[in-house]
Design a protein around this nucleic acid. Structure first.
Lengths: 144, 144
DNA sequence: CCATGTTATATTGTGCGCAATTTAATATCA
DNA sequence: TGATATTAAATTGCGCACAATATAACATGG
């Protein structure tokens, strides 16, 4: 009954389930903007600060070039951003939003509330979730 | 500063990050058993109850046939389980563990503690995390 | 018994995620 | 300067996730 290999005794499995459930809630909402959830995260990073190189985005989102390079190319193909190597260091690819990409933030403004509604949770529950998750997440960063 | 589109104001992003961080902690530990995290989940489901059809496993793990069929084929290729259509209803594929697959539970017994150690968290923190996550996860099931 | 609908799994296609390797540019040091 | 090391992206390969569709088996009504 308290066998640590029983599914009901798992802690990580609910986190994994919730994470997928969340992206499922985002999907129809982001579909209207033509975005996936990881693409939306990249855009949020760029809406905050621009330009940013691939590495900077990767640090903030904990994603590597194997994930980001094709994702950024897809966003470029959609006309939302431009990829250009820096002249002072040709190894670095700098990402700039296009006007369309910048403007998309306006359309995305309603996404958070729509998701919260779709998830059927209160702001208090979300804050509680965030607090607990961040506390554990912080402990991973040093030795990951 | 309290722009809902700022990364630091996101609730779902930490959940998404933590979920990936967790599977990263599992990876080296499960590598020793030749398993991925989703494969480990499927085996936990089967260690609890056997045989199970694809659908039953999918319900427990919230995964569909598009994910499970190839995953189960890989576990079959590893010799851990057998897939066989039921004679009474040929639509249903029944999954049985092999002796090797059943025996693997013994080797997996240490996985949970190893992961907990790798994550550097206390049992209390994990219980707190589980409680909050399950509370929110429960609210999704009905309208997903 | 046959047509129609339903059900269970499989297949296809797209997009992550990540390890491992490659490529090219820059830095360093003998 | 020229060999070596380091760094940043890109590439390759594999395994999920999931939508959409296909396939085959079963169920049901006329």
């Amino acid at each position: 009954m308290d066998d640590p290999l029983l599914l009901k005794n798992q802690v990580c499995f609910p986190v994994y389930s919730l994470s997928r459930e969340i992206t499922n809630k985002y999907r129809p909402i982001l579909d209207e903007l033509g975005l996936t959830y990881p693409q939306y995260l990249v855009l949020m990073a760029l809406w905050e600060n621009e330009p940013q190189c691939v590495n900077e985005i990767g640090c903030k989102l904990h994603l590597d070039s194997g994930t980001l390079t094709p994702l950024l190319k897809r966003l470029e193909a959609k006309g939302l951003l431009a990829r250009r190597r820096k002249s002072c260091d040709e190894r670095v690819v700098e990402i700039n939003l296009t006007d369309v990409g910048r403007k998309l933030k306006t359309e995305a403004a309603e996404v958070p509330q729509k998701v919260m509604k779709a998830m059927n949770v209160t702001a208090e529950e979300l804050m509680e979730l965030k607090e607990v998750v961040l506390k554990i997440l912080d402990k991973q960063s040093c030795n990951s």
